[in-house]
Design a protein around this nucleic acid. Sequence first.
DNA 1: TGCGGCCTCCCCCGCAGGAGGGAGGCGGCC
DNA 2: GGCCGCCTCCCTCCTGCGGGGGAGGCCGCA
Lengths: 221, 221
Amino acid sequence: MTATRIVVVDDQDVVRAAFEVLLATQPDFAVVGSAAEGEQAVRICRDLRPDVVLMDIRMPGMDGIEATRRLLTDPEPPRVLILTTFDLDEHVYDALDAGASGFLLKDATAERLFDAVRIVAAGEALLAPTVTRRLVAEFARIRVRRREPDAALQALTTRETEVLRLIAEGLSNPEIAARLVVGEETVKSHVSRVLAKLGLRDRTQAVVVAYESGLVVPGDR
Amino acid sequence: MTATRIVVVDDQDVVRAAFEVLLATQPDFAVVGSAAEGEQAVRICRDLRPDVVLMDIRMPGMDGIEATRRLLTDPEPPRVLILTTFDLDEHVYDALDAGASGFLLKDATAERLFDAVRIVAAGEALLAPTVTRRLVAEFARIRVRRREPDAALQALTTRETEVLRLIAEGLSNPEIAARLVVGEETVKSHVSRVLAKLGLRDRTQAVVVAYESGLVVPGDR
DNA sequence: TGCGGCCTCCCCCGCAGGAGGGAGGCGGCC
DNA sequence: GGCCGCCTCCCTCCTGCGGGGGAGGCCGCA
């Protein structure tokens, strides 16, 4: 098996050199190039086609996030391993969005760095636990909501739920009546019962409940 | 530095034995125990206090997900590395939710397994790229919406946006007036201008726009 | 200096929408 | 058979909201 081809991107010469030396101690790694800035990194990777790019975020000129985004547009992009000083860095999510495969704190041990590069090169993703926790938390939030709308909504009849959903589309009573092909009076009594059952004052609050309960999900229309 | 203490949980004796032998080849690993089922795994971990648990998902009796959940209730829980046969396994998200630190395909190479254990032991999280991609995609969906609500909303002044946000909380005009410490008439004119600028008929539609545009995100309250 | 945008407050008007009743038809369940 | 829940429709009352004006004060910009 051939060595993992690596490019190091960091604006600080010392840091860059340190990583290069460190990585060179591993027989299965080959540092094929380096860059001090995003624009340069993109150009170099286009030529050298590394397997993994160690990418600093904060750099003069094009930053690591944008560089990552550019790199990922390539049909056969390298894996990008982001190096951050603080793992709570705001940019972490932007980097994920840009397509980074992982994060590593700059103060990680050499062994950790080696493991990380190998993991990322193999196509896995590596995340700091705090990041994962937040990601998972966000994700769990969506899923939980998606499977069980909300206790209170269970009290509604199918027709009432239907009406609530239409309210949450911003329809007026006459419009809902037209949509359901019933009289407006009918709609009004449905609406009244929905509000009563949910303990709400007006249809505006009903819309809020519809969204917050997960009965209606943004973007589903 | 002491060896990483590992417990292997898998209902198939052969698999369990294979992992034990494999892990034993590494000087920095120490397999301290194993279990064939969730209940047993929880009990064993309580006594042996391993650093990492290699956990199969599908098992008779208590499955890996539930076992993970139980293990994580411990004040100083072990890191759980889930072993799946297919990384598209439905349970992946449940496992993340339960607190697993990572996933590994059972057909991974020995080196990958070793790296994975070390990574997880160090407190990082390891995810298969497909899982990460889906997680990040979900997450990005939320964020994208969060940073750039919508073109039309840009036309609103800060005060108008503020009012829209309060409308989207289900507040009436008098309530908004109280909240902003201004007259109700003021609120009415703000509301009117919001509706006019966004081309809406009533506040109900304004709530819909607030959610659909991402100005307001379900669960943020 | 004047202009324009924003926030503030005020007026009148019309109406959709919500409260609070009642009532009939239909289906399922006991 | 009788009861009950759901869907349907009807009535009155009235208030909250939105439309359509106007107006004054403040600030930033030209």
